[in-house]
Design a protein around this nucleic acid. Structure first.
Lengths: 156, 156
DNA sequence: GGGCGTTTGTTATAGACGATTACAATTCCC
DNA sequence: GGGAATTGTAATCGTCTATAACAAACGCCC
């Protein structure tokens, strides 16, 4: 029916009694594991809605920055232009995003949420935020703040 | 020449002047961005060595837990058994890992590093650790410790 | 000890995702 | 104006991973 259906990512379980050696000291590995864990929360939040992380990010970015181009969208997502186009095609087919010509630049499209897209992204934001908080409930509010700050600092 | 050559992952750049809306408050997104950034360090560390993150993890795990089975390896990596097998096939073709029959269990193989595999993993660990530290140099030693602890706590 | 469900490795197949390349239209800059 | 750069588009390829099906070996239970 739907062209793509987001699948659950297999969790990276910590096998008891196994020696993880240097992996526990590496930020790269720890971040990967944490990211997969949080992806699980995302998957729950968007179950049955045909939404993947890149799609969610794209909808939020377009909603907050109406009129941006596909190239910029690709740069934000860290994918090539061709991928940004496939994404936009899908959004358009779903009636969530529309391309509008720009008066000053005949090359680039301007991306905008449709009315339906706005409703969808509002709903998604609420769900994703709720599940993100829920999955990270082992952290206190203070710890969560610290974590976000350190991640921000890490990426510069 | 080499069958697979790991490619660099496009970085997720922070486009200046763009509104990221709710994304900055989501652990899932922040973790993803940080993970991609640290993946860049990994890519540098292993340039030209035909090593991907799963391959590195697998080599370290096999080295620290000789005799483990392909199924357990798959569980550690968060991939299906079939994937663990493709991985093991590749290691064997490279002469880094060998499968040995187990006396008590005729189904599962026991995975072991070869002499060459041991040398390779020792070299890789040193390089990856160095680049991991280097890429995260914006963080003080204390901040790095805190970050690792929070990530550990998050995953439970 | 016989039988049945489970686990493991294996193989083949399919799908998702993104990169790469090439091309045409447009814009920018000297 | 004219050449370099940017944008969208299309076609193609490669990599990774899941899924399903199968055979062999194991464990359990009576």
């Amino acid at each position: 029916m739907s062209p793509h259906r987001p699948r659950a990512l297999a969790p990276i379980v910590r096998v008891p009694g196994l020696d993880y050696d240097v992996l526990d000291e590496l930020l790269g590995y720890s971040l990967r594991r944490a990211q997969v864990a949080m992806f699980g929360a995302f998957h729950e939040a968007t179950r049955g809605m045909d939404i993947t992380p890149p799609r969610f990010t794209a909808l939020v970015i377009i909603g907050a920055n109406p009129g941006l181009s596909q190239s910029v969208l690709g740069r934000v997502l860290g994918i090539a232009r061709s991928g940004a186009m496939v994404l936009t095609d899908w959004f358009e087919a779903q009636g969530l995003v529309e391309r509008k010509r720009r008066p000053n630049d005949g090359r680039a499209w301007g991306l905008h949420l449709t009315r339906r897209g706005e409703q969808r992204v509002a709903s998604l934001k609420a769900r994703v935020r709720r599940h993100d908080l829920q999955r990270a409930r082992r952290l206190s509010a203070e710890e969560r703040r610290v974590l976000l700050r350190l991640l921000e600092k890490l990426c510069g």
